[in-house]
């Protein structure tokens, strides 16, 4: 069976990253924005694993574990902040959080 070329993994990761970026920029629900950010981080993980297996070097895969751990920590902090916002404003739409402006 033929091996999948490295470029395909990177292309897939790039596409996922772009989808995540577009999601962050266009969505207004804080949870969906956060999910898009997670998608971006996961595409980075895919990139790292692809490079890691390409080089036969384990440090990329170890990096992935740290990215996953940090994404989990980020989720804990982020959801707590969203919850705090919901308690005060009864909304999680970021365009309704608009007290701070010029």
């Amino acid at each position: 069976m033929n091996e999948i070329p490295q470029g395909y993994y990177l292309l897939l990761a790039g596409v996922l990253f772009t989808i995540g970026t577009i999601g962050v920029l266009t969505r207004r629900n804080a949870i969906i924005i956060f999910m898009s950010i997670e998608l971006m981080l996961n595409s980075v993980n895919l990139t790292l694993v692809a490079f890691s297996s390409f080089f036969g070097d384990s440090s990329g895969q170890i990096f992935v574990f740290f990215v996953m751990a940090i994404a989990a920590a980020e989720a804990a902090v982020g959801l707590a902040i969203v919850l705090a916002l919901f308690r005060l404003k009864k909304t999680i739409y970021v365009d309704e959080a608009n007290i701070l402006k010029y």
């Binding site: 995540g20 924005i33 005060l88 007290i99």
Partner: peptide
């Protein structure tokens, strides 16, 4: 509310930039 809103904006953009 201002403090929480600041945290939300900081968090979303900070996590975005982390990506």
């Amino acid at each position: 509310i201002m403090s929480v809103e600041a945290a939300l904006k900081y968090f979303l953009l900070g996590a975005f930039s982390t990506g």
